[in-house]
Design a protein around this nucleic acid. Structure first.
Lengths: 352, 352
DNA sequence: GTGAAAGCGCTAACAA
DNA sequence: TTGTTAGCGCTTTCAC
């Protein structure tokens, strides 16, 4: 239990493999072999080596070894924003996979900016990561001034699905939009408003398409109400309030984003209405509070764990040199039926 | 805008500083000087170098340069758990500070286990991080089988405050416990239950001490009600329900942890009671939903941004060789007064 | 202002 | 099975 957690720095010098070698009375190559197991080492030598390692407190200099081997056992992870719970969950999953496979994670945030994205990736490349996991800030990933023209093995998650030259993994957004809407339809709703912050990302647009399809399949093609609320909880809230104030307010709302969900909730409260009594709500994403405060929030959520597992798997294959065709993985969403949406009451709204 | 985002790998070979040198007709040393600016370079040479760099698409191999310079411009960040919003916020802040100072972050999760913590730190050291930021899993940081006996400059955040040989930065937990309780006292409450998941960490114990002090200062020394609910939202919930079922239920509750807050909310709902009508609630931590769903949650929260800024600052000093005395920084909490706690009614509220 | 040469710590040939 | 040697790509004396 030798710790000392000693005051930083000031060490005489970290022992090198040479120090170990001379103390063990073998060559550096043997030490290396004993440590890495790349070539057989006599039991005796190995023991000598380990004794010396312990005695000296030797730790391989991963830097030197990476430089020599041409691989760092490190992957870069680029996310648009660490405060979004979904991204944070992905980070957690990836950290886990990485640790289990002997990789380290270099974390970078692009702050939702394509050019910052480019800069951060550049920096990661300079550090010679073996691979890159990126949640792109927009669908044209790779198009930004100063974007590196050579990438290590890279897997794109969530956004930029179907990139022409990179593996991509995403959720079945279309299906998610469909399911959310169908669920509401099933409950008897006919006036279903959809709330989205913007139309920038394809994944969001897909959700909207799914919503439209569900509506049109139900013979309600003309009844779309797509509310673009803007980024930020407050702007979404404003937009929804406006919608609720109309003479023909929706009887149900489908928020297709985490912030949109929060905005919708705030709007409903602000109008002194309540869900599911006055209006049904289907939200998006998973968060613990959704099952803490009543009514529990019915929501569609991404299977972040499966998403991460798949992305990691693909990346690992690539890093190991696999040259199979581009991955194009679509993963199902989860539909968490709880309490915030319910059967439309017959008297609720005037019919058209 | 030269991108290609080309299919991974298969490159001929990354150009090195030598390639640049020969193309520019100067020596490697000059290229290095031009790039790093460590020594003056003639304008002419510099231009030549940059042209060659552009033409070749050269990128310094940070690995090689780190090895040579003996510094990586990388710091390791160890957190107990990425799913806790507070830690995630710290990570975000640190990533930001790092990027602004030209550092990269190597992220590791200890999964709340001291031994995993040791293992992960070991790995980071092997990668020769210049510094370490760690949110320790317990107060005896550094005591675990296999814990490295030499650390780079290290700053401990949140837990293990006052470590004998490392800089520590934490919130004023005692003050937080005090404030939360005093606020409730001020509102006229006399039966205030405190909910904590456990007594393991000193920061939590300090909050409890603060609560006790506030009570005793108010002449209510005998009225402490400390409920240890266990990790996990559900167990907390169970414990609170039990408390609320007593013949003399508390009129107010103070949850001193994020999960405890969620547990308290669930318990209150499960009892078909509501806050602040039947019982007042002061929660812990900051989350957007606390100001989305009514009633908004009154809560004490850590100033994660200030915490991170201070920790980063201290770490940077150390990494630059500062040898001043150990930092021991206590930062104030924030008291977010919202709606979940209110004046105790003279007559205990009847059921609705 | 610039170059030659050594070397950071490790691993991979190549020999033995 | 093991050692010797070269060199990964960079920076840094030291000399000019």
């Amino acid at each position: 239990m030798g710790q000392d957690a000693g005051r930083s720095g000031r060490s005489p010098r970290q022992p090198t493999i040479r120090d170990v070698a001379s103390r063990a009375g073998v060559s550096p190559a043997t030490v290396s072999s004993a440590l890495t197991g790349v070539r057989p080492v006599a039991a005796k030598s190995r023991q000598l080596v380990f004794e010396a390692v312990d005695a000296l407190g030797f730790k391989v200099n991963h830097l030197a070894s990476s430089l020599r081997r041409g691989a760092t056992k490190t992957v870069g992870l680029v996310v648009p924003d660490l405060s979004t719970a979904f991204y944070a969950s992905l980070v957690r999953e990836f950290e886990n996979h990485a640790a289990n496979s002997g990789y380290e994670i270099l974390l970078a945030s692009s702050s939702d900016s394509p050019i910052k994205e480019a800069v951060r990736i550049e920096s990661l490349i300079s550090r010679r990561v073996d691979g890159l996991l990126v949640i792109a800030t927009h669908d044209d990933f790779g198009v930004a001034p100063g974007f590196p023209d050579q990438l290590p093995p890279t897997v794109l998650i969530d956004a930029a699905f179907g990139h022409p030259s990179l593996d991509t993994v995403a959720s079945d957004n279309l299906g998610a939009g469909r399911s959310g809407c169908e669920y509401l339809l099933q409950l008897g709703h006919r006036d279903i408003a959809l709330l989205t912050p913007d139309l920038d990302l394809e994944n969001v647009r897909d959700r909207i398409t799914g919503y439209r399809q569900a509506l049109s399949d139900a013979g309600l093609a003309g009844r779309e109400r797509v509310i673009v609320g803007g980024r930020g909880i407050e702007t979404c809230r404003g937009a929804i309030e406006q919608e609720l104030r109309r003479p023909d307010p929706p009887t149900a709302m489908f928020a297709i984003t985490y912030f949109a969900t929060l905005g919708a909730i705030k709007a409903i409260q602000a109008m002194e209405m309540s869900f599911p009594d006055d209006v049904s709500l289907v939200g998006f994403a998973h968060a613990e509070w959704m099952t803490a405060i009543r009514p529990y929030i019915t929501a569609v959520s991404q299977a972040y764990d499966t998403l991460a597992a798949n992305a990691w798997h693909v990346l690992e294959q690539r890093m190991n040199g696999s040259d199979t065709e581009l991955a194009r993985i679509r993963l199902p969403f989860r539909m968490n039926i709880r309490e915030s949406a319910r059967q439309r009451l017959p008297v609720q709204t005037p019919r058209a």
